[in-house]
Amino acid sequence: MTEYKLVVVGAGGVGKSALTIQLIQNHFVDEYDPTIEDSYRKQVVIDGETCLLDILDTAGQEEYSAMRDQYMRTGEGFLCVFAINNTKSFEDIHHYREQIKRVKDSEDVPMVLVGNKCDLPSRTVDTKQAQDLARSYGIPFIETSAKTRQGVDDAFYTLVREIRKHKEKMSKDGKKKKKKSKTKCVIM
């Protein structure tokens, strides 16, 4: 069974824990209790493949930012979460993405942009803004509501699919490099 290491990042209060708990335990946590770091595991079937999701729910508070490099190193894919009623959390996505790329030393890291709290009427981040940002990053965008469960499975499952595509691409690139290195030079 394939294991996928997913990391949920975003500013404090955007609903990272609520999304994760909704996926794992099928219930909505409405009281806000700032996370330092929590880890969850769940076995699911995605596109006919049974897999184990190892999900790291991270601290959004700035005082825990020193811990970010460590979990970013171990993560295979990242859910970059903002709240649709919090423009600052949307603007912060850029910083999370840049930090992930720096730590992973790669421009090509599996990510999904997630606009959470889409059940709320007080939207300050337009869907088109988020779609445009995701398009500019070359990553999928999904709106979710941890409260109603809308888009929750889709967000995590899409990230797994992005990781699969990335692994497939990397193995193809690896095979191309191996083929090239088999060419021999004969000096007579």
Rank of each mutant, 00 (worst) to 15 (best):
M72D: 04
Q99A: 11
L113D: 01
E107S: 12
L120A: 14
E107C: 10
I84Q: 15
M111E: 00
Y71Q: 07
D92A: 14
S89G: 08
Y71A: 14
E107Y: 09
E98M: 03
C80K: 01
G115D: 03
Y71N: 13
D126H: 08
S106A: 10
Y96I: 15
Q99P: 00
K117P: 00
A66Y: 12
V114A: 03
L79E: 00
P121E: 14
M111Q: 01
F78G: 00
S122Y: 09
N86L: 02
Q70Y: 07
V109Q: 03
V103D: 07
V81I: 06
M111R: 01
M67Q: 05
V114P: 00
D119W: 02
A83R: 05
T124E: 13
R73N: 10
I84W: 13
R97D: 04
S106W: 12
R123E: 15
D119R: 03
G75Y: 10
I100T: 04
N86S: 11
Y96S: 03
P110F: 02
M72A: 06
I84G: 15
V125W: 12
G115W: 08
P121F: 10
I84N: 14
V112E: 00
R73W: 06
E63Y: 01
V114F: 01
D126V: 07
S65T: 09
R73K: 09
L120H: 13
M72N: 04
P121I: 09
F82G: 15
M67A: 04
E107W: 10
K101A: 11
Q70L: 05
V114D: 00
F78E: 00
V81A: 06
V103W: 15
P121H: 10
E107P: 06
G77N: 00
Y71G: 15
M111A: 02
D126I: 06
E63S: 03
V81S: 06
D108M: 06
S65F: 07
K101G: 08
R73T: 13
N116D: 05
T124L: 10
A66L: 09
Y64P: 02
V109N: 01
V112L: 06
D69G: 06
K88V: 07
P110M: 02
V112R: 00
K104S: 12
M72G: 07
H95V: 09
K101F: 06
R97L: 15
R123N: 13
N116A: 15
L113N: 01
G77P: 00
Q70D: 10
G75V: 09
T74N: 14
L113A: 04
D119N: 07
V81Q: 04
A66D: 11
L79K: 00
N86R: 05
A66E: 07
Q70W: 04
V109A: 05
K101Y: 08
D69A: 06
N116K: 02
S65P: 05
R68I: 01
V109K: 02
F78Q: 00
N116V: 15
R73H: 10
L79R: 00
R102I: 04
I84S: 15
K117T: 14
A83S: 12
D69M: 04
S106K: 07
D69S: 09
D119K: 03
F78M: 02
D126M: 08
Y71R: 14
R73I: 06
D126G: 09
R97C: 15
E98W: 01
A83T: 08
R73C: 10
C80E: 02
V125C: 12
Y64W: 01
L79H: 01
P110T: 03
R123F: 09
G75Q: 05
Y96Q: 03
V125G: 13
V109W: 06
C118S: 10
F90W: 14
E63G: 04
Y71I: 05
E76Q: 11
C118A: 10
Q70P: 09
R97P: 03
D92R: 10
E107L: 11
